[in-house]
Computed example of a mutant assay.
Amino acid sequence: MDNKQLKQHPISAEYVVEVPFFDLDPMHIVWHGNYVKYFEEARCQLLRTIDYDYPQMKASGYYWPIIDIRLKYIHPAKYGQKLRCIATLKECENRLAIDYRIEDHETGKRLSKGYSIQVAVTVDDFEMQLVSPKILSQKIELFYASL
């Protein structure tokens, strides 16, 4: 599996959340840091989709820390609003690059977007891998084979 194939056949997953009161800031909108939490939930769902969530990563001998994350706010989310958080795998060869979109569940109005970059490091000595471990492409290929 390479990035070109992934572009042609993207893998996405979504997470739906109803904004709880404790996610609000003093302006009664979702506090900016909680969008990253919503990204994380969608990312975990995406990783579960390919059967390579964090426990499987560790069992395969790798951690995948985030080395870069970006977020753009477009419209505020409010208490009780249902949000659809979509994570899409964009790159897998040398890193995990995942795009995110958060939108109103009912209207589809875009509220925020962003991306994260993760790299593989060995569990034993945290040595960064310059190429993604084979296990990642194997998991992606198994996912496509199951469709």
Score class of each variant (00 low, 15 high):
residue 65 P to L: 01
residue 136 L to R: 03
residue 72 K to A: 15
residue 52 Y to T: 05
residue 67 I to K: 04
residue 20 P to L: 05
residue 99 D to F: 13
residue 102 I to W: 00
residue 4 K to N: 15
residue 10 P to S: 07
residue 57 M to G: 01
residue 39 F to Y: 14
residue 91 E to H: 10
residue 23 D to Y: 14
residue 6 L to E: 01
residue 105 H to W: 12
residue 127 E to A: 13
residue 56 Q to G: 07
residue 6 L to V: 04
residue 48 R to V: 10
residue 111 L to H: 05
residue 131 V to A: 11
residue 99 D to W: 10
residue 94 N to W: 06
residue 16 V to Q: 10
residue 26 P to S: 07
residue 61 G to P: 06
residue 63 Y to Q: 06
residue 75 H to F: 12
residue 54 Y to Q: 09
residue 101 R to I: 13
residue 8 Q to W: 06
residue 47 L to C: 07
residue 106 E to S: 13
residue 113 K to P: 00
residue 133 P to A: 05
residue 60 S to W: 03
residue 109 K to A: 15
residue 61 G to H: 09
residue 110 R to Q: 14
residue 40 E to H: 04
residue 47 L to H: 08
residue 45 Q to F: 14
residue 129 Q to R: 10
residue 39 F to D: 00
residue 102 I to Q: 01
residue 128 M to E: 10
residue 81 Q to G: 05
residue 107 T to P: 02
residue 83 L to R: 04
residue 30 V to W: 00
residue 102 I to A: 03
residue 84 R to I: 05
residue 94 N to C: 14
residue 14 E to F: 12
residue 113 K to N: 11
residue 70 R to K: 15
residue 48 R to L: 09
residue 109 K to L: 15
residue 41 E to A: 15
residue 20 P to W: 02
residue 17 V to T: 04
residue 17 V to Q: 07
residue 15 Y to W: 12
residue 49 T to Q: 12
residue 28 H to Q: 14
residue 30 V to H: 01
residue 33 G to T: 05
residue 60 S to G: 07
residue 10 P to H: 08
residue 134 K to F: 09
residue 76 P to R: 01
residue 27 M to H: 11
residue 44 C to M: 11
residue 132 S to F: 01
residue 88 T to N: 05
residue 97 A to F: 09
residue 57 M to P: 00
residue 29 I to Y: 02
residue 130 L to N: 08
residue 63 Y to F: 15
residue 92 C to F: 04
residue 58 K to M: 12
residue 105 H to A: 14
residue 134 K to C: 10
residue 45 Q to L: 14
residue 137 S to R: 15
residue 13 A to F: 02
residue 7 K to I: 11
residue 71 L to T: 10
residue 103 E to V: 10
residue 126 F to L: 15
residue 67 I to P: 00
residue 104 D to A: 05
residue 136 L to H: 04
residue 56 Q to N: 12
residue 139 K to E: 03
residue 90 K to V: 11
residue 29 I to L: 04
residue 38 Y to M: 03
residue 75 H to Q: 13
residue 31 W to F: 11
residue 95 R to T: 04
residue 69 I to E: 08
residue 96 L to Q: 12
residue 139 K to L: 03
residue 19 V to P: 02
residue 46 L to D: 00
residue 76 P to N: 08
residue 100 Y to C: 03
residue 41 E to P: 01
residue 25 D to F: 07
residue 49 T to R: 15
residue 115 Y to Q: 04
residue 61 G to M: 08
residue 4 K to Y: 12
residue 87 A to V: 10
residue 75 H to I: 05
residue 29 I to D: 02
residue 79 Y to V: 05
residue 14 E to S: 15
residue 136 L to M: 14
residue 51 D to H: 13
residue 127 E to D: 11
residue 3 N to Y: 07
residue 103 E to P: 05
residue 115 Y to F: 13
residue 135 I to L: 06
residue 96 L to D: 02
residue 45 Q to N: 12
